[in-house]
Write a protein that binds this DNA or RNA. Structure first.
Ligand SMILES: [Zn+2]
Ligand SMILES: [Zn+2]
Ligand SMILES: [Zn+2]
Ligand SMILES: [Zn+2]
Lengths: 145, 145
DNA sequence: ATAAACATTGGACCATAGTCAAAGGTCAAG
DNA sequence: CTTGACCTTTGACTATGGTCCAATGTTTAT
């Protein structure tokens, strides 16, 4: 018998069976062949495909973005620039999120610095700042994952 | 007549009616008094409370964390250190997320640098890197929001 | 008086990425 | 042949933060 059952596949890829089936429903992996008894039988290549998904996820790509990357990977007409553009878009997205978080961090640090941490909360400058008048604030660019 | 209907309140706070009711369900604002005709009537203070929520949200606090902050704010026995500790925890959380994103950014930049963007995707080093063998990777500290 | 604007409730639905359970069929070992 | 491990399906549920809808009731303005 050649091929892997879903359990073997999941184990090789370091995922759960549920996750593999979830990716199938989402169209990230092809519906595999079935045995006479209706068990899914996967080709060895699907291990690599799942590892691809995991790695891309670790890089911050969403499942739908990963789906596109997988499609590109298997499209003979796709060009490197298709991949590179998506990578650069993700870089912009991540940079934007880092900027947003950095602004938040600065604001939190300012607030924390203003509070000595002693005495009743009723006189806490952090709470006072949050209770103060409204301000303008930045709005985040769409972006993926 | 004193007090605000939900529409006025939402407008003053810059939220939608649905969001105000959602916050009520989540216990972020008290259930308000009702008129004879069952309309919610809010005290003016609730405007400040909603603005507090918005500001805390902009600082990266989750609704359940904000609920705690609001509770502290109105607890005569609460101390500044309760607030400060939560602020510092959020600072650690945000720093951790920035670090995670920075690692991701570096990895994406490396990948992007390796690809000239010309030619067929079949020879794209980005896709090759994603198809390669598995590596160890960092695991993110729990953390809130 | 009548229409527009506003309020009420309950519940469904969006996206994201799974996770779990129930009820049953299949396969390998002892 | 039975037990346990493995597989099948459907569908519900988790967490987060809302958003929208229908059907109905109320208030306000003209
Ligand atoms: Zn303080
Ligand atoms: Zn941003
Ligand atoms: Zn490339
Ligand atoms: Zn982290």
């Amino acid at each position: 018998m050649h091929g892997l059952t879903i359990g073997k596949l999941a184990k090789k890829a370091g995922l759960t069976i549920d996750t593999v089936r979830f990716y199938e429903r989402r169209g990230l992996i092809n519906e595999p062949a079935r045995t006479q008894s209706n068990y899914r039988m996967y080709p060895e290549e699907d291990v690599a495909r799942l590892i691809f998904i995991k790695k891309a996820k670790d890089l911050g790509f969403s499942l739908s973005e990963i789906k596109e990357l997988l499609f590109i990977q298997h499209d003979p007409d796709a060009s490197k620039s298709d991949v590179k553009e998506r990578t650069e878009a993700k870089i912009r997205d991540v940079r934007c999120r880092i900027k947003d978080l950095t602004r938040i961090l600065k604001a939190l640090e300012q607030l924390s610095k203003g509070c000595d941490g002693h005495g009743p909360a009723s006189a806490c400058p952090i709470l006072e700042a949050l209770s103060g008048p409204e301000e303008e604030h930045h709005h985040h660019n769409g972006g993926g994952s």
